[in-house]
Simulated assay, not measured.
Amino acid sequence: MIRVFLVDDHEIVRRGLADVIDQSSDMEVVGESATVRHALGRIEALVPDVAILDVRLPDGSGVDLCRDIRSRIPNVACLMLTAHDDDAATYASVLAGAAGYALKSVDTPSLLEAIRAVRNGRVLLSADAVASAASRMRETSLADPRLGSLGLRERQVLLHIADGLTNRQIGEHLGLAEKTVKNYVSSLLTKLGMQSRTQAAIFQLSGGERRRPDGAPESRSDPPS
Protein backbone atom coordinates (compact mmCIF):
# COMPACT_ATOMS: atom_id res chain seq x y z
CA MET A 1 0.00 0.00 0.00
CA ILE A 2 1.15 3.54 -0.78
CA ARG A 3 0.89 5.57 2.43
CA VAL A 4 -0.17 9.19 1.84
CA PHE A 5 -0.15 12.23 4.15
CA LEU A 6 -2.28 15.30 3.29
CA VAL A 7 -1.46 18.92 4.14
CA ASP A 8 -4.12 21.49 3.19
CA ASP A 9 -5.80 24.17 5.28
CA HIS A 10 -9.23 23.56 3.68
CA GLU A 11 -11.00 20.65 5.36
CA ILE A 12 -13.28 20.08 2.39
CA VAL A 13 -10.24 19.68 0.13
CA ARG A 14 -8.61 17.22 2.52
CA ARG A 15 -11.84 15.23 2.80
CA GLY A 16 -12.22 15.10 -0.96
CA LEU A 17 -8.60 13.98 -1.44
CA ALA A 18 -8.91 11.40 1.32
CA ASP A 19 -12.10 9.93 -0.18
CA VAL A 20 -10.50 9.61 -3.62
CA ILE A 21 -7.27 8.08 -2.27
CA ASP A 22 -8.93 5.67 0.16
CA GLN A 23 -11.16 4.32 -2.61
CA SER A 24 -8.06 3.21 -4.50
CA SER A 25 -7.00 -0.37 -3.75
CA ASP A 26 -3.28 0.39 -3.60
CA MET A 27 -3.10 3.47 -1.37
CA GLU A 28 -4.38 4.89 1.89
CA VAL A 29 -4.32 8.19 3.79
CA VAL A 30 -2.36 7.73 7.02
CA GLY A 31 -2.58 11.29 8.33
CA GLU A 32 -3.41 14.89 7.59
CA SER A 33 -2.75 18.41 8.81
CA ALA A 34 -4.01 21.93 8.15
CA THR A 35 -0.80 23.74 9.12
CA VAL A 36 2.96 23.64 8.61
CA ARG A 37 3.50 23.63 12.38
CA HIS A 38 1.62 20.40 12.97
CA ALA A 39 2.55 18.70 9.70
CA LEU A 40 6.29 18.18 10.04
CA GLY A 41 6.20 16.37 13.38
CA ARG A 42 3.41 14.08 12.25
CA ILE A 43 5.15 13.28 8.97
CA GLU A 44 8.37 12.50 10.85
CA ALA A 45 6.42 10.13 13.12
CA LEU A 46 4.40 8.40 10.39
CA VAL A 47 6.98 8.42 7.55
CA PRO A 48 4.48 8.17 4.67
CA ASP A 49 5.53 7.27 1.13
CA VAL A 50 4.04 10.46 -0.32
CA ALA A 51 3.16 13.83 1.21
CA ILE A 52 0.67 15.95 -0.75
CA LEU A 53 1.32 19.59 0.18
CA ASP A 54 -0.70 22.71 -0.50
CA VAL A 55 1.66 25.44 -1.70
CA ARG A 56 0.01 28.17 0.41
CA LEU A 57 -0.76 27.43 4.05
CA PRO A 58 -1.98 29.79 6.81
CA ASP A 59 1.22 29.63 8.88
CA GLY A 60 3.81 29.29 6.15
CA SER A 61 4.71 27.88 2.76
CA GLY A 62 4.20 24.33 1.55
CA VAL A 63 7.43 24.81 -0.40
CA ASP A 64 9.36 25.44 2.83
CA LEU A 65 7.65 22.44 4.38
CA CYS A 66 8.72 20.36 1.39
CA ARG A 67 12.32 21.48 1.88
CA ASP A 68 12.21 20.49 5.58
CA ILE A 69 10.66 17.11 4.79
CA ARG A 70 13.21 16.33 2.10
CA SER A 71 16.03 17.36 4.45
CA ARG A 72 14.85 15.36 7.46
CA ILE A 73 13.06 12.43 5.82
CA PRO A 74 14.43 12.10 2.25
CA ASN A 75 12.47 8.89 1.56
CA VAL A 76 9.19 10.84 1.60
CA ALA A 77 8.24 12.04 -1.89
CA CYS A 78 6.50 15.42 -1.97
CA LEU A 79 3.73 16.24 -4.44
CA MET A 80 2.82 19.93 -4.48
CA LEU A 81 -0.84 20.80 -5.00
CA THR A 82 -2.12 24.29 -5.76
CA ALA A 83 -5.11 26.13 -7.18
CA HIS A 84 -2.94 28.41 -9.32
CA ASP A 85 -0.40 27.72 -12.06
CA ASP A 86 2.52 29.79 -10.79
CA ASP A 87 5.95 29.66 -12.46
CA ALA A 88 7.69 31.07 -9.38
CA ALA A 89 6.10 28.47 -7.09
CA THR A 90 6.98 25.70 -9.53
CA TYR A 91 10.61 26.79 -9.63
CA ALA A 92 10.74 27.09 -5.84
CA SER A 93 9.21 23.62 -5.54
CA VAL A 94 11.89 22.16 -7.79
CA LEU A 95 14.64 23.70 -5.68
CA ALA A 96 12.93 22.45 -2.51
CA GLY A 97 13.11 18.89 -3.79
CA ALA A 98 9.48 18.28 -4.76
CA ALA A 99 8.93 15.25 -6.98
CA GLY A 100 5.89 16.70 -8.70
CA TYR A 101 3.54 19.66 -9.04
CA ALA A 102 -0.17 19.45 -9.84
CA LEU A 103 -3.18 21.77 -9.99
CA LYS A 104 -6.20 21.18 -7.75
CA SER A 105 -8.27 20.97 -10.91
CA VAL A 106 -6.55 17.67 -11.78
CA ASP A 107 -8.94 14.78 -12.46
CA THR A 108 -9.06 11.74 -10.17
CA PRO A 109 -7.22 9.23 -12.42
CA SER A 110 -4.42 11.72 -13.07
CA LEU A 111 -4.01 12.48 -9.36
CA LEU A 112 -3.81 8.79 -8.43
CA GLU A 113 -1.31 8.16 -11.22
CA ALA A 114 0.74 11.14 -10.01
CA ILE A 115 0.87 9.68 -6.50
CA ARG A 116 2.02 6.32 -7.86
CA ALA A 117 4.60 7.99 -10.09
CA VAL A 118 6.31 10.07 -7.40
CA ARG A 119 6.20 7.14 -5.00
CA ASN A 120 8.15 5.13 -7.60
CA GLY A 121 10.80 7.83 -7.91
CA ARG A 122 9.64 9.55 -11.07
CA VAL A 123 10.00 13.28 -11.68
CA LEU A 124 6.50 14.51 -12.42
CA LEU A 125 6.51 18.02 -13.86
CA SER A 126 4.76 19.35 -16.94
CA ALA A 127 6.82 20.19 -20.02
CA ASP A 128 6.11 23.89 -19.42
CA ALA A 129 7.25 23.67 -15.81
CA VAL A 130 10.46 21.90 -16.82
CA ALA A 131 11.15 24.48 -19.53
CA SER A 132 10.56 27.37 -17.13
CA ALA A 133 12.74 25.94 -14.37
CA ALA A 134 15.43 24.92 -16.84
CA SER A 135 15.53 28.42 -18.30
CA ARG A 136 16.03 29.95 -14.85
CA MET A 137 18.79 27.47 -13.97
CA ARG A 138 20.60 27.68 -17.31
CA GLU A 139 23.18 30.32 -16.35
CA THR A 140 24.43 28.37 -13.35
CA SER A 141 24.40 24.93 -14.96
CA LEU A 142 26.07 25.53 -18.32
CA ALA A 143 29.60 24.11 -18.18
CA ASP A 144 29.10 23.54 -14.47
CA PRO A 145 32.31 22.02 -13.04
CA ARG A 146 30.28 19.66 -10.83
CA LEU A 147 29.48 17.58 -13.91
CA GLY A 148 33.17 16.75 -14.20
CA SER A 149 33.06 15.08 -10.79
CA LEU A 150 30.61 12.43 -12.02
CA GLY A 151 31.82 9.04 -13.18
CA LEU A 152 30.64 7.34 -16.36
CA ARG A 153 27.84 5.39 -14.72
CA GLU A 154 26.69 8.41 -12.72
CA ARG A 155 26.44 10.48 -15.92
CA GLN A 156 24.48 7.69 -17.61
CA VAL A 157 22.11 7.51 -14.64
CA LEU A 158 21.71 11.30 -14.65
CA LEU A 159 20.66 11.25 -18.32
CA HIS A 160 18.03 8.61 -17.58
CA ILE A 161 16.76 10.54 -14.53
CA ALA A 162 16.25 13.53 -16.85
CA ASP A 163 14.17 11.25 -19.08
CA GLY A 164 11.89 10.51 -16.12
CA LEU A 165 12.90 6.86 -15.62
CA THR A 166 12.59 5.08 -12.27
CA ASN A 167 15.54 3.25 -10.69
CA ARG A 168 14.15 -0.06 -11.91
CA GLN A 169 13.82 1.23 -15.49
CA ILE A 170 17.33 2.69 -15.39
CA GLY A 171 18.64 -0.65 -14.19
CA GLU A 172 16.94 -2.41 -17.12
CA HIS A 173 18.53 0.03 -19.59
CA LEU A 174 22.01 -0.23 -18.10
CA GLY A 175 21.98 -3.87 -17.02
CA LEU A 176 22.33 -2.98 -13.34
CA ALA A 177 20.53 -4.09 -10.20
CA GLU A 178 17.96 -1.61 -8.88
CA LYS A 179 19.93 -1.30 -5.60
CA THR A 180 23.08 -0.45 -7.57
CA VAL A 181 21.23 2.28 -9.46
CA LYS A 182 19.97 3.66 -6.14
CA ASN A 183 23.57 3.88 -4.92
CA TYR A 184 24.60 5.75 -8.09
CA VAL A 185 21.69 8.16 -7.65
CA SER A 186 22.70 8.89 -4.04
CA SER A 187 26.31 9.39 -5.10
CA LEU A 188 25.56 11.79 -7.97
CA LEU A 189 23.16 13.84 -5.82
CA THR A 190 25.88 14.21 -3.19
CA LYS A 191 28.44 15.30 -5.80
CA LEU A 192 26.01 17.81 -7.31
CA GLY A 193 25.03 19.14 -3.88
CA MET A 194 21.36 18.35 -4.46
CA GLN A 195 18.64 16.69 -2.41
CA SER A 196 16.30 15.25 -5.02
CA ARG A 197 16.02 13.58 -8.41
CA THR A 198 13.84 16.50 -9.53
CA GLN A 199 16.67 18.97 -8.98
CA ALA A 200 19.10 16.69 -10.81
CA ALA A 201 16.71 16.27 -13.75
CA ILE A 202 16.18 20.01 -14.13
CA PHE A 203 19.93 20.57 -13.77
CA GLN A 204 20.59 18.13 -16.62
CA LEU A 205 17.83 19.53 -18.82
CA SER A 206 18.89 23.13 -18.21
CA GLY A 207 22.22 22.47 -19.93
CA GLY A 208 20.40 22.79 -23.25
CA GLU A 209 22.17 20.30 -25.52
CA ARG A 210 22.27 16.80 -24.05
CA ARG A 211 25.56 14.95 -24.22
CA ARG A 212 26.40 11.29 -24.09
CA PRO A 213 28.67 10.16 -21.25
CA ASP A 214 31.60 10.15 -23.71
CA GLY A 215 31.06 13.89 -24.27
CA ALA A 216 29.52 13.64 -27.75
CA PRO A 217 26.32 15.59 -28.45
CA GLU A 218 23.17 13.51 -28.17
CA SER A 219 20.03 14.21 -30.15
CA ARG A 220 16.73 14.13 -28.27
CA SER A 221 15.65 11.40 -30.65
CA ASP A 222 18.62 9.18 -29.81
CA PRO A 223 17.76 6.14 -27.70
CA PRO A 224 19.12 6.19 -24.13
CA SER A 225 22.50 4.52 -23.74
Score class of each variant (00 low, 15 high):
residue 1 M to H: 03
residue 3 R to N: 11
residue 7 V to I: 06
residue 10 H to P: 10
residue 11 E to A: 14
residue 12 I to S: 12
residue 12 I to T: 14
residue 12 I to A: 13
residue 14 R to T: 05
residue 21 I to H: 01
residue 22 D to Y: 02
residue 26 D to Y: 00
residue 27 M to P: 00
residue 30 V to C: 10
residue 31 G to C: 03
residue 31 G to I: 00
residue 34 A to T: 07
residue 36 V to M: 09
residue 39 A to G: 05
residue 41 G to E: 05
residue 41 G to A: 07
residue 42 R to N: 10
residue 44 E to I: 14
residue 44 E to S: 12
residue 45 A to T: 01
residue 46 L to T: 03
residue 47 V to G: 03
residue 49 D to V: 07
residue 50 V to W: 02
residue 52 I to E: 06
residue 53 L to Y: 04
residue 54 D to Q: 07
residue 56 R to Y: 11
residue 61 S to N: 06
residue 64 D to R: 00
residue 65 L to V: 00
residue 65 L to R: 05
residue 66 C to G: 06
residue 69 I to M: 08
residue 69 I to P: 01
residue 70 R to N: 10
residue 70 R to Y: 03
residue 71 S to C: 06
residue 72 R to Y: 00
residue 76 V to A: 04
residue 77 A to S: 15
residue 81 L to W: 05
residue 81 L to Y: 13
residue 82 T to V: 09
residue 83 A to Y: 08
residue 87 D to N: 06
residue 89 A to F: 03
residue 90 T to S: 14
residue 92 A to S: 13
residue 97 G to S: 07
residue 99 A to K: 04
residue 100 G to F: 05
residue 102 A to W: 10
residue 104 K to E: 08
residue 105 S to D: 12
residue 107 D to A: 10
residue 110 S to V: 04
residue 111 L to Y: 05
residue 112 L to F: 04
residue 112 L to D: 02
residue 112 L to M: 04
residue 116 R to K: 12
residue 117 A to K: 09
residue 119 R to P: 02
residue 120 N to M: 11
residue 122 R to A: 06
residue 122 R to D: 05
residue 122 R to I: 03
residue 124 L to K: 06
residue 125 L to N: 01
residue 125 L to I: 02
residue 125 L to F: 15
residue 127 A to K: 10
residue 129 A to C: 04
residue 132 S to N: 10
residue 135 S to G: 15
residue 139 E to Q: 14
residue 142 L to S: 09
residue 142 L to I: 15
residue 143 A to L: 13
residue 143 A to K: 12
residue 145 P to S: 12
residue 147 L to P: 01
residue 148 G to Y: 04
residue 149 S to G: 07
residue 149 S to W: 08
residue 150 L to C: 06
residue 152 L to K: 10
residue 152 L to C: 06
residue 153 R to Y: 10
residue 154 E to S: 11
residue 155 R to N: 10
residue 155 R to H: 11
residue 156 Q to I: 03
residue 158 L to Y: 00
residue 160 H to D: 14
residue 165 L to M: 14
residue 166 T to Y: 09
residue 167 N to C: 09
residue 173 H to R: 15
residue 174 L to N: 04
residue 188 L to G: 05
residue 189 L to W: 07
residue 191 K to D: 06
residue 192 L to G: 07
residue 194 M to K: 07
residue 197 R to C: 11
residue 197 R to A: 13
residue 199 Q to K: 02
residue 199 Q to P: 05
residue 203 F to P: 03
residue 205 L to N: 04
residue 207 G to D: 09
residue 208 G to R: 11
residue 210 R to C: 09
residue 210 R to A: 15
residue 212 R to Y: 07
residue 215 G to S: 02
residue 218 E to K: 14
residue 221 S to I: 08
residue 221 S to K: 13
residue 222 D to I: 01
residue 222 D to R: 12
residue 225 S to H: 13
residue 225 S to D: 14
